[in-house]
């Protein structure tokens, strides 16, 4: 697998990251090195093996349908870089 200059742009965009070209080249080289190394997993016969998603012994957990959000709106908003009247503020999206 070659993680080339186009791949790094696509993946960086998906992850909402953006670099100058020299950093793109450096990260692409690093990721290629890692992908070459994980190639060894192709040796393993995984036919019929279920993917292991969680090692938690619990199947699912349900609770009573009541609000338990802690009523922390004011405290949570204190960490917002920009807010207006208890709402998060972001750059305009719709003209």
């Amino acid at each position: 697998m070659s993680f080339n200059e186009q791949t790094i742009k696509t993946i960086a965009n998906l992850a909402r990251l953006k670099f100058p070209q020299e950093d793109e080249a450096k990260f692409a080289k690093d990721i290629n090195g890692i992908l070459d190394w994980v190639e060894q997993l192709k040796e393993v016969n995984v036919d019929g093996v279920e993917p292991l998603v969680s090692v938690s012994p619990r199947e699912n957990a349900v609770r009573a349908d009541v609000v338990t959000d802690g009523s922390l709106q004011t405290e949570l908003m204190a960490n917002a870089p920009e807010s207006v009247q208890g709402f998060y503020e972001v750059p305009r999206m719709v003209e």
Partner: peptide, 10 residues
């Protein structure tokens, strides 16, 4: 594939 091999390790 990684999750499958994870099960083998488990």
């Amino acid at each position: 594939r990684a999750q499958r091999v994870r099960r083998l390790i488990y």
